[in-house]
Computed example of a mutant assay.
Amino acid sequence: MSGRAGETPDRAPGLTLVSSEGKPYRFDPGALCLELTTTGGPGAFARWEVLHEPADLVAWAGRSRLPAGLDLTVSAEELERARTLRDAVFLLAADRAHGRPPRAAHLDAVNTAAAEPALVARIAPDGSRAWAPGATGTQLLSTVARDAIDLFTGPYGHRVRECGAHNCYLLFVDTSRPGRRRWCAMEHCGNREKVRAHRARTTPPRTP
């Protein structure tokens, strides 16, 4: 993984991640559920874990593509369920990106979370979209899970991709018109891979 959640908040879609070299770059995975996968993952990806306490999930929600102003309370048990849902979405997306069939346990995790009440939207006095106060972690996870269902069953379900860089596993949905997006971010992995390819073409082969 070439970068994980070390985001700075703003309202544009996507997140600002920080590479292993400490360089920030913009990553838009194209879906709320895939934004959650930047917070860690199963197995070897656990080293990127950032959801260590309930406040971390609250902070992630504030940086996500959800409208601002979410009054959210998260319990320790909800945090644990968030990591379970996150890992399931991560593996479902990776399986989809590589043409593998989804696994029942991962589908069950998403469906279980989606069955709970979701966040309640409302219109603020200024006409903007807002959230009803007193939101819970369970409602947040339901909203994320429903977004995953919409993604995997919707018109872009076949466009879930894994970054094409050799050491990056960030997942995104390719919403570009031609459907040819290869990198998590051109300014990060795209440029690095172009440099790598150029060096491979121009470096003379070493003689034994």
Rank of each mutant, 00 (worst) to 15 (best):
T153D: 07
R192N: 11
F90Y: 08
L91V: 14
V120L: 15
G30F: 00
E193V: 08
L140S: 09
P9F: 05
T16F: 02
R161V: 05
L72H: 12
R180D: 10
A124S: 09
A76D: 15
P24H: 06
G134P: 04
K194D: 08
T39K: 02
A12W: 01
V110K: 07
P29R: 04
E80K: 14
D28V: 03
E193S: 09
L141I: 12
T8S: 08
A94R: 13
A124E: 13
T84Q: 14
T84W: 12
V120H: 11
G43S: 14
L34Y: 02
A94W: 09
D95T: 13
Q139R: 12
V120W: 11
V18E: 06
A44E: 03
P204A: 14
D126I: 07
Y25E: 03
A82D: 15
R180F: 03
C168P: 00
R161E: 09
L171Y: 02
K23Y: 00
A94Q: 12
R83T: 12
P208S: 15
A113P: 05
M1R: 00
R11A: 14
N167M: 05
G6P: 03
A76N: 15
R47K: 00
A135T: 08
E49V: 00
L32E: 06
V173K: 09
D108F: 11
V120K: 12
A118L: 04
S75D: 14
A55H: 05
G6E: 12
F172W: 01
P155Y: 03
R122I: 03
S64E: 01
C184P: 00
A68V: 04
R26Y: 03
